[in-house]
Design a protein around this nucleic acid. Structure first.
Lengths: 248, 248
DNA sequence: GCAAAAGTGTTACCGGTACACCCATGC
DNA sequence: GCATGGGTGTACCGGTAACACTTTTGC
């Protein structure tokens, strides 16, 4: 393996969202530091999944690399949403302690580029078992202790996601290839913190010709089995209309 | 004056848009390099207005600084829109020549954070006369020679602006404090590359209660004088409704 | 047969679009 | 008085919102 040189002042951090058919989740790293002699826990909190970029890779490439290392998946939805460079983003006491501990000689002025990733939660959960990484419900993040400015970055990512989901068909990235309309509705409700009328929701979806009903139906459920649907990006790209008007 | 240390791998670039009541413009630096002996022009093109960040300033602060140095104005609309870190963004032959010439010892791997700035064009034009900086119509950029990846960054900024203007009341940042509805309409048409029906446009605006008619009217124009209007951010913030629905 | 979620239609209202003429001013 | 842009109303259409019952399955 080639050893890479890192770019000292730049990192990427990925905010990875997942959906388990019930609620929206985020993938976080459990960070723990114990005193070597006493065993006393000095730090116990959470970080986003990020790392420095190498001097021979693009920002996007770095983000994909981190994601691949973590989940084993590629071809995920991944998109930059902001850069963060506050002077004090790494300067809290515990974060300084941590940086000293890992001792990789990172600069103390680090600009990080935030990436938003969307994953079908159910696919990934298994592969995480060995790493100190797990899904946490988005709603619980507010009560969690987090490293650096990662809580701030997380909320900016959530904001960006909520904004984007209203005007682009990216919600589908959080669902498996086949899904039911109820699952889709639950997802939109979880994303937007709203609730929709079932009939109106379905009417709306039926106008999106890129959400295509399959022959397949649910099996083994103790109620009327639901129809499965498929999202076709191809049909979406072909049929999307350019809105020229504005709403403010 | 204190001498600052720069962060070697990070810069900001501002894409500054202005509107002259006719068309959308962008503020660009004229870059020229002549051979010292022969006087032959080696480089003659344009750059965005950007610079490295100092190690004691935030990204936003750096962008404000650059803007202030250039236009003499602060309190401008300024917002990050993306970060750029392609490996080859600085590696073209003429850009290498240029970097060697200015010889500031910059790293050759530079990640830049793009900022979008909106200015009332008419206010600024005067102050630029001494600098090698001027307004260029947005429509002409496609035919212009530009440094580094600045053309790419410019188009990304334009895209971001067009997207944003559809859902947030930022167009007003490009107009003076008082403006007529025709000016506003022309602005939206220039921004979105569309044209609107006058009556429908005015109906739409009249529903935006944060666009407030003044007592003042135009004077000295050879036609019926137009009413002046004012944008009130305060009223906007108070009355804006949170759209919970989605359109894709 | 009962619990649980799937699926389906109608009406009322509002915002968007299309369209043509008179008005106030400077010269 | 004429050229120039300012300003106004109405009719149709399509999308959004509110609302309740029947269907299919597993147990």
């Amino acid at each position: 393996m080639i050893s890479h040189k890192i770019v000292p002042n730049v990192s990427v951090d990925c905010v990875i969202f997942g959906f388990d058919f019930e609620k929206l989740n985020v993938l976080l790293v459990d960070r723990e530091l114990k005193d070597e002699r006493t065993g006393k826990v000095l730090i116990s909190d959470h970080t986003l999944t990020g790392y420095h970029i190498y001097d021979d890779e693009d920002l996007d490439t770095a983000a994909y690399r981190i994601l691949k290392e973590l989940t084993g998946l590629d071809n995920l939805f991944l998109e930059q949403f902001a850069a963060f460079g506050q002077l004090d983003r790494v300067s809290s006491e515990k974060d300084q302690l941590w940086l000293k501990h890992i001792n990789k000689g990172f600069a103390d002025r680090i600009i990080t580029v935030g990436y938003l990733a969307l994953i079908d939660n159910t696919q990934v959960t298994l592969k995480l078992s060995e790493k100190n990484v797990q899904w946490y419900p988005v709603n619980e993040v507010k009560n969690m202790e987090m490293a650096f400015d990662h809580k701030y970055i997380f909320y900016k990512a959530l904001e960006a996601l909520q904004k984007k989901v209203k005007v682009e068909p990216i919600a589908f990235e959080l669902l498996p290839d086949y899904f039911t309309l109820s699952q889709l509705q639950k997802l939109y409700e979880a994303l937007l913190g709203a609730s929709f009328d079932k009939r109106n929701f379905r009417k709306k979806i039926s106008q999106m010709h890129y959400v295509i009903p399959l022959k397949k139906k649910q099996k083994g459920v103790p109620h009327k089995p639901a129809q499965y649907y498929l999202f076709s990006r191809e049909v979406y790209e072909k049929t999307k209309k350019n809105r020229i008007s504005f709403i403010v």
